[in-house]
Design a binder for these strands. Structure first.
Length: 111
DNA sequence: CCACTGACTACTT
DNA sequence: CAAGTAGCCAGTG
């Protein structure tokens, strides 16, 4: 497996509860800003074996990208149970919930 | 090695 | 907002 793949896994595992990360963001943190698509494939192939928090990974517009509705609902449920808020259009406010290493605040949220 | 795939992204219509 | 285009790159066969 490529080192890049390993780094992506590491990044995903480090997303704090209640935060989300975009595919591109995970790719960038893993050292390959153009590797967003690999992130999605990694999640698909590794989430089974590594117990990854795959639900904390969404696309650059703050929306769920899963193709199947059941999976979308599951991801949304998991995120909401962690405190992530979805607006009426079904998207997450990345300005609030995006995981940004080094930019951590003591508290966050819409309040 | 080549061809194809994909839970992406940014840009343009 | 939806649809099309181009760039991207590791896994798989």
């Amino acid at each position: 497996m490529e080192e890049y793949t390993r780094k992506v896994l590491d990044v995903i595992l480090n997303i704090p509860k209640g935060r989300v990360l975009t595919y591109g963001g995970a790719a960038a943190l893993a050292g390959n800003p153009k590797g967003a698509r690999q992130v999605s494939r990694i999640l698909h192939s590794m989430s089974r074996n590594y117990n990854l928090p795959w639900h904390r990974v969404i696309n650059s517009r703050g929306r769920i990208s899963l193709p199947r509705k059941e999976e979308q609902d599951l991801q949304r449920d998991l995120l909401e149970s962690e405190g992530v808020i979805f607006d009426e259009k079904g998207s997450v406010d990345l300005n609030i919930f995006l995981y940004q290493p080094g930019h951590s605040r003591k508290s966050f949220g819409p309040l």
